[in-house]
């Protein structure tokens, strides 16, 4: 079944030079393993295809039920050079949460995941 990341995680993002960092945190600890399995660096790179110029790095913080992503080349050169509204990557957090995961029905039911509307 389709599960929206926005229904199972929260997030915060910011910048370091031309890199956006996005921390994704499971809303329930028991949802973290699923998120860690599905939200791979490749999955995130595909989501941002055309929107970022560099690679995606991923780090695990299982202790905080969180993943940290670095999106390279995401900010048109960085904070003061970028002409975008989101020059400092503040809302990459919620653009990440637009991702929709495909989860086997039995697993989704067992974890009590909310169905995508």
């Amino acid at each position: 079944m389709k599960v929206r990341l926005v229904d199972i995680a929260h997030a915060r993002s910011g910048d370091k030079g031309n890199i956006a960092n996005v921390g994704v945190i499971a809303l329930k600890p028991e949802w973290y393993p699923l998120i860690a399995r599905e939200l791979t660096a490749d999955r995130v790179a595909a989501h941002y295809a055309g929107a970022i110029k560099g690679r995606v790095e991923r780090f695990e913080l299982a202790n905080l039920h969180a993943l940290n992503f670095l999106l390279h080349g995401a900010l048109d050169g960085g904070g003061t050079l970028s002409l975008r509204t989101d020059a400092q990557g503040k809302v990459f957090s919620t653009s990440m949460l637009r991702i929709v995961l495909d989860v086997p029905d039995a697993e989704a039911r067992a974890l009590g995941l909310p169905d995508a509307p």
Binding site: H10, A11, R12, N21, G23, I25, F59, L64, A66, N68
Partner: peptide
């Protein structure tokens, strides 16, 4: 815990 966790992951790179 969520409000503190959001700030812990803010503008970090490799958490190790």
């Amino acid at each position: 815990v969520p409000s503190v966790t959001e700030q812990l992951v803010y503008e970090i790179g490799d958490p190790r």
